[in-house]
Computed example of a mutant assay.
Amino acid sequence: MAPRMAASVFRCALFCLIFFVNSVFCLGFRSSFTREELINIRKTTPEDFFHLSRLTCGIIGHFGQRSLTVTLAVKRRRRGKRAGALTRLRRRGLRTLLPGIFLSKVRSLPNKLDELQLLVQKSRDFSSSSVLCFTETWLCGSIPDSALELAGFQLFRADRDTELSGKTKGGGICFYANSGWCKDVTVILQHCSPDMETFIINCRPFYSPREFTSIILVSVYIPPQANVQEAQRALADQILCVERTNPDSLVIVLGDFNKLKQ
């Protein structure tokens, strides 16, 4: 802000000086632009993320046969560059203060794996996500990890237990941790019941704020027919236990809560 104010003050002072000189010599002043100046007035050249355009002040004082022309360089921001925060965030890549998390309710992960692989290859925002979290994966023991691989990501899965949940299909949670963001990932808790499924992992990324020793991700899936009060109680107990065990860690809770959101 200070350089802009200084530039504005300088321009005003220069204008007053030229006006004073013209008034003293009683020569008057006039504003004029040549055809070439009008054509080139909006032509710009890139410098960093700005354009410098030549803008003629238009005050020409005549001293006998001589003339004084003032040319000012004005910084112009390139169109489409106003989202500076997003641009700077993308430049940081995986070295962000908080992890970029992609969350989705997929309703069967295997039949969407081709689309996910395409997104990893083509979408920069998707491939630069620190963690991918999917609920309702519908995975079971007959589907190996090798059939679910994504380039550059580590898979951590928690399939629905048919005996604990009382359901034969559906459910399931998984994490894909970006290898460029973190490779030190441990599973803290895997919980399955008729009212809630929880999957908790502890991540120690390569770059994180000094205030946090690690980042704990809590993914939750609560079925639509679940007992809301029981699910709330169980989830609160699990989060409190994690916070007490890891007081210096950042805990992030995410997932599909269905009725619990109401």
Results as ranks from 00 to 15, higher is better:
171 G>S: 14
175 F>M: 03
167 K>S: 09
179 S>P: 00
184 D>N: 07
170 G>M: 06
163 E>S: 13
163 E>I: 15
184 D>P: 00
172 G>Y: 03
182 C>F: 03
167 K>M: 07
164 L>A: 14
185 V>N: 00
176 Y>H: 10
170 G>S: 10
180 G>A: 07
163 E>H: 13
186 T>K: 04
180 G>E: 02
162 T>K: 09
162 T>F: 08
157 R>Y: 07
178 N>K: 04
177 A>C: 14
183 K>W: 05
155 L>I: 11
173 I>P: 03
186 T>S: 05
186 T>Y: 00
184 D>W: 01
162 T>H: 09
178 N>T: 05
181 W>D: 10
165 S>G: 11
182 C>V: 10
187 V>K: 08
159 D>A: 08
159 D>N: 12
188 I>L: 15
181 W>A: 04
185 V>M: 02
173 I>S: 04
157 R>I: 03
159 D>R: 02
162 T>A: 13
160 R>K: 15
173 I>F: 05
160 R>C: 13
157 R>V: 05
183 K>Q: 13
180 G>H: 02
163 E>Y: 13
183 K>M: 12
178 N>V: 00
186 T>Q: 06
175 F>K: 06
168 T>D: 13
161 D>W: 02
158 A>R: 06
157 R>T: 03
176 Y>C: 12
166 G>S: 14
176 Y>N: 11
186 T>G: 00
184 D>M: 04
188 I>A: 08
164 L>K: 14
169 K>V: 10
165 S>D: 08
178 N>Q: 01
169 K>G: 10
173 I>L: 15
157 R>H: 05
185 V>C: 05
174 C>H: 04
188 I>K: 13
157 R>K: 12
176 Y>V: 09
174 C>E: 04
185 V>E: 01
164 L>T: 07
173 I>H: 03
179 S>C: 13
160 R>V: 13
179 S>V: 08
181 W>M: 11
186 T>R: 04
184 D>S: 02
162 T>V: 12
159 D>G: 01
186 T>I: 00
173 I>Y: 03
178 N>P: 00
179 S>T: 11
171 G>N: 14
176 Y>D: 06
188 I>F: 10
165 S>Y: 07
178 N>A: 07
165 S>Q: 09
156 F>G: 02
187 V>D: 03
182 C>R: 01
185 V>F: 00
166 G>L: 12
172 G>L: 06
159 D>C: 11
184 D>V: 07
180 G>F: 02
181 W>Q: 11
164 L>E: 09
180 G>D: 04
172 G>D: 07
174 C>A: 13
183 K>G: 13
177 A>G: 08
159 D>T: 04
182 C>H: 00
167 K>Q: 12
159 D>I: 11
178 N>H: 08
156 F>K: 03
161 D>P: 02
181 W>C: 05
168 T>K: 15
172 G>M: 07
164 L>N: 05
166 G>F: 10
174 C>W: 04
155 L>F: 11
175 F>D: 01
